[in-house]
């Protein structure tokens, strides 16, 4: 009989809107932050990620949102 152990991994659960989730998946697949960071996609609005990524991710998102800001792009 095969006894399977349950794995435990500590990390961060992110709650966001579906659009942000797609953005996160994109960042993960393109390794825009240097490495993959998504551990598991839970559902449309929840995603489980590595603990260390929080700061990098926040900065990256801030830059991205800034770049998309109409006040800047319209100039």
């Amino acid at each position: 009989i095969l006894i399977r152990m349950v794995n435990v991994k500590k990390g961060l659960m992110v709650t966001c809107d579906p659009a942000m989730k797609q953005l996160l998946i994109h960042l993960d697949e393109t390794r825009a932050l240097g490495s993959k960071f998504i551990v598991k996609e839970l559902d449309d609005t929840h995603i489980f990620v590595d603990k260390e990524i929080q700061e990098v991710l926040d900065n990256k998102l801030d830059d991205l949102m800034e770049a998309m800001n109409p006040e800047n792009t319209d100039k």
Binding site: N7, V8, K9, K10, G11, L12, M13, V14, T15, C16, M20, V39, K40, F48, K51, Q54, L57, D58, L61
Partner: peptide, 8 residues
């Protein structure tokens, strides 16, 4: 994004 510490 809202972060919560969690275990999977």
């Amino acid at each position: 994004l809202i972060y919560q510490e969690a275990a999977l």
